[in-house]
Design a protein around this nucleic acid. Structure first.
Lengths: 208, 208
DNA sequence: CAATCCACTGAACACTTGTTCAATCATTCC
DNA sequence: GGAATGATTGAACAAGTGTTCAGTGGATTG
């Protein structure tokens, strides 16, 4: 009966264990909030012992930081990759960034809950802000550059940096709406909403 | 030397004490997050004794709920009042709602920190969502109605409910940007940003 | 096989938490 | 003035927290 099912090994590679613990942390934050995320709950969710958390992470705060960093990297990798894949036209590249923002892998309710749990703590834990600010700034700058390129070939209704800022706000705002009122706001609607805004900005309605 | 300075009375009217405790809670959440807000810190911030918190509020959770409700009511009262004050034209009424959203009394960094601290907990504490959903829905419905009225007298670039949803996202998104990157995003800029969006939607660029 | 290594365990520790409650104090009422 | 009322205090308590660490055992090496 010794089927070769990948059972939970008693001993695993450190990276694998860290990943398991981070996954468990994401689940815990999503269902109990940061204030309700204890090391006991994390270890229990991961099916591991309490002491193991402090073995793989210096302390609880390090675990939380790694969790946020993992989410941030995942997001960063996705929009970067999606954007690179698309060939030349800048308009399509911006749309690719929008699609990455609302990709199921990134924009699940569970992960949104974790994102906003951290956002809610950014004021007094500036390390959290530092972790996210990097990718936020890079994406916004990328959008600004793309908009600048678009502006050279067609009339844009607004300045590129203003539009990039509005885009950033739409990203975060629609995320929050999906998190709080998932019955009223969906990923697909949010994606359409942001694209509609871009369509409004791009349209050469009455090219004089 | 007995100047009639309003010193902290040892005994105060219950409502006054409750207000003091809620103010202290706002300060605590803003500087330590919800997870770092303890009854000891709240009572210390308020300059009152520990036991008094549980005397005026059933428990810690009741205190937090009253705090959120107070913020929600303050916001609701402001935009309602600002909107009523403005005379007839619906366009001006929408602008009044925008201005209320970014009014210094509502949109201070301190209060934004508290708002997002609660947003970060809404997934597992549905009571928080219930408290805010009421005013959110009412404001969005009001905007939708106003946009419908505007659509009757001029061409609107988009459907009223879609625009109302985008407006909602812009409100929340700009709030988050101000909270996280106050050096890069200000209240005034945010207000202008939202108004620019409305300008884009309202403009009869090439009225055929 | 024996020895070494190190991921792993969970009991134990010091500390903080929310909550309770008997005692205290200022005020109000007769 | 004296009693009654009710707001206020802070010590005490049980429950839960993050962290430590001596010990366990499965894998790897010689």
């Amino acid at each position: 009966m010794a089927v070769k099912v990948k059972k939970k090994a008693r001993v695993e590679a450190p990276e694998e264990r860290r990943r398991q613990l981070i996954d468990a942390t994401v689940s815990c934050i999503a269902s109990h909030g940061i204030s309700g995320t204890t090391l006991r709950k994390v270890s229990e969710t991961a099916g591991l012992s309490l002491g193991l958390v402090n073995f793989h992470f210096a302390n609880k705060d390090a675990l939380l930081q790694h969790t946020l960093r993992t989410l941030a990297e995942e997001h960063h990798n996705l929009w970067k990759q999606k954007m690179m894949k698309t060939a030349l036209p800048p308009v399509e590249k911006i749309y690719a960034i929008v699609e990455a923002q609302f990709h199921p892998k990134i924009c699940s309710r569970k992960k949104l809950a974790v994102w906003f749990a951290f956002f809610g703590e950014t004021r007094h834990r500036k390390i959290y802000r530092e972790i996210t600010s990097g990718i936020d700034a890079e994406r916004m700058e990328t959008c600004r550059t793309l908009l600048q390129q678009i502006a050279e070939e067609r009339t844009l209704w607004g300045q590129p940096d203003k539009i990039a800022a509005a885009l950033e706000a739409l990203f975060d705002g629609t995320w929050l709406n999906i998190l709080m009122y998932p019955e009223a706001f969906t990923r697909a609607q949010a994606e359409r909403q942001v694209k509609d805004y871009l369509g409004l900005v791009f349209a050469q309605r009455c090219s004089g």
